[in-house]
Every structure is written in structure tokens, then in C-alpha cells.
Simulated assay, not measured.
Amino acid sequence: MKAVLAKDLEQDAKLAKRTHAELCKQQRVFNARNRIIGGDTQAWDIQVHDQRIKEATEKARHETFAAELRQNDKVICILDDREKRDRKCLCRAISDFQQNCQKPETRREFDLSDPLALKKELPARQSDSDVRNTVSGMQKFMGEDLNFQERKKFQEEQMREWSLQQHREWERARADQKFAEDHYTQTRLNFDETASHLQKLESITRKAVCAAVKEFNRKQAMESAERKRQEKRQEQEDNMAEISSQLRGDLLSENPQQAASSFGPHRVVPDRWKGMSREQLEGVRLAQKQQIQEKLRLQEEARQRDLDWDRRRVQKARVALLGERRQHRQQCEDRRALDRSNLRLAAEQRLQCAGHGWARGRQRSSAPIKRGPGLFPLKRLFIFIYIYI
């Protein structure tokens, strides 16, 4: 079932209303009793009534708008009066604040337009230490101070004190220099005495040290000679022991057992092996001779075998040649026999042709003549055997 929406209901209502209006209009138009010369007075009355209602509605709406406008005008007037009153109060407050808190004498640039500025100003120079007397003001120059006399007197007194102090310092410096020179002279004398005494002590000490060093060197030389003698004797003993060890050892005695390897009796240690013994060399030479004889024997057997094969090949070639010759003679004999047979047959054929007629004799005379096998293969075999031999 299809759901019914509010929009569908509204469309159905409009359609039904339009249909009802059309039906009413048709009744009014097509009804002869109510129709007056084609005019619909009832519809006209309804239209006039609707127009009056519309005009009344418009008039009421305009009156409402006019009332709202009047109300808004009153509100605007009230707000305007309030704004003017507030602005007036603000201006009065600003004026009071300026008169009380922003006086002309409190401004930063008031000194530029102050009418009593000249009366309020201080003199150009109150004292020598006035902070306003700057270099650019040119209010004070060297020697133009206010207490010039007192300053000059003070300077003279100061110069006299400086001179006296300098003289005292000079006298004190001369006394110090003289004392330093005397002290230096006394110190030099003391140093010279001490140096001479130390030199004497040094010479005595050097002599004692030289004697001690000489004695020490003598003892060291004796100990060194004894040590060298002992080392030489020990070295000779070691050399003799080494020589005897080498003579009795396996290295120089060339013991073949020392070169035996642990991997088998057929292997040796290369760094200990002294070469083969006489028996081993003789065995090697004997084996080499046997190998040479065996090789010569094999070569002789190969040569004999080659000669045998050559002889057999020649014999076979000779037999083949003899067979070929015999075959050739047999073929020649067969050829001669065949020729004699052909001649006999030809004679018989001629006799028969003479008896039976020329045509038949000619037909028989065209019979093939038998020939023996060719000699070309035998000739070629003979030439090959001759070249090979």
C-alpha cells in the first residue's frame, strides 16, 4: 500500500476545489433560467465582494503599517533626544576634564608658548659647576672661572709642594743608589771568596772522584776480562759438545731412519732426507734398464707385427691380382666363346633369312648380342694394388 503524504493531500484538495469551481461555472453558464444574455451576475457579485474584501484587507494592512511607522518615529525621536542629551553631557564632562586635568601649563610644549617664560628663566651662568654650561653653549672658557684668584693661589702653592716633594724624592733616590752600590760591592766580595773556596773544594773532590773512578774502572776491566775468559771457555765447551753431537747425530751420519715419514714407509720427510742409498740407486737403475729392455721388446714386437701385417697385405694383394688375372683370362675365353657362338648364330640366321624372306630375316637380325662383364673394375683394382706396392 502506497503511503499518503501531506503534499499529495494538498494537491488532491486543490484539484477537487478547481473541479467544483468548474462545475459551478458550467451550471451558471449553461443554465438558461439564471443566464442573462451570457452574463454571470452571481459570479460578478462574488468578484465584487472579493475585491471589497481585498481592498479592506489592504486598507487595514496600510493602517497597521502607518501605526507602526508612527510608533517608530516616536521611538526614533526619543532616542535622538537621548543621544543629544548624552552627547551634551559627554562634551561637558570632557570640557571639565580638560579644565581640571589638562591645563596648559601641564603640557609638554607649554614652555614654547609660555608668556612668563623670560621671568621664569634662570641666569645664563650661576656657578662654574653649572650643568647647563655645555661646550656648545660657550658660556665658560678656560681661565674665565669666577674663582680665578683663589685657583691661581692654590696652583702656586701646589707647584711649590710638588717641587719640594720632587727634591725629597731625588735625595732619597741618591741615598738608595749609594746604598745599593755599597751592598753590591760587598756582595761581589763575598761571592768571590765563596767561589775561591768552592773551587778548592771542587778540585779536591775531582781528584777523589778521579781516583775512585780509576779504581772502579780497573775492577770493572778485571771483571770484564774474567767474564770474557769464562764466556770463551764456555763457548769452546759448547762448540765441542755441539760438534760431537753433530758427528754422532743422525744429521751428519746420514741415518736414513731419520727421514722416515709417519704417513707410510714409501714416504720421507723432505727437510731430513739426504738422498737415496747406493742399493736404492742400483735398484732404480736396474728398474730403468728393465723398463728400457721392455720398451725395446715392445717396439720390436710392434715392428714385427707391422711387418707381418704388411706381408699379409701384400700376399692378399698378390692373390687378388692373380685372381683378377685368372678372372680376366676366363672372361677373355668366355668372350671368345661367346663371339664364336654369335658368329655361328649369325650364320644360321643369315641362312634362315635367305630361306624365309627378307623381312623376317631382318627382324631376327635385330636380336641383341650378349656381351661379357666389363673389365674396368678389374683394371682399377690392379692399378690400386700396383700403386700400393
Rank of each mutant, 00 (worst) to 15 (best):
R318I: 10
S277M: 04
G39P: 08
L381H: 08
R70W: 10
S224V: 09
I369Y: 09
E68C: 15
Q27L: 10
L79N: 13
D271Y: 08
L69P: 05
W273S: 03
S244C: 03
G38P: 01
H183P: 03
K228G: 00
A180D: 13
T134M: 03
K59I: 04
H183W: 00
I292Y: 12
K228T: 05
N72V: 03
L381W: 09
Y184N: 05
W358T: 12
A3T: 11
G39M: 14
Q363F: 08
I387M: 15
Q220G: 05
F376M: 15
F141D: 08
F216S: 05
T57N: 15
G39L: 05
P368M: 08
D176V: 08
L375N: 08
R248W: 05
A367I: 12
R227I: 04
F97K: 02
S127V: 09
A6N: 04
A60T: 11
K274M: 01
R285A: 10
R160F: 10
R160V: 06
M276G: 03
D182F: 15
C77L: 11
K219I: 11
C24W: 14
T185I: 09
G249R: 13
N217C: 09
P373E: 00
Q304C: 04
Q280N: 02
V314K: 03
E223K: 05
E63G: 08
E144P: 10
C210P: 11
G357R: 13
V209A: 10
Q102A: 01
N217M: 02
E109N: 08
N34T: 10
R108C: 13
T106D: 06
I243W: 03
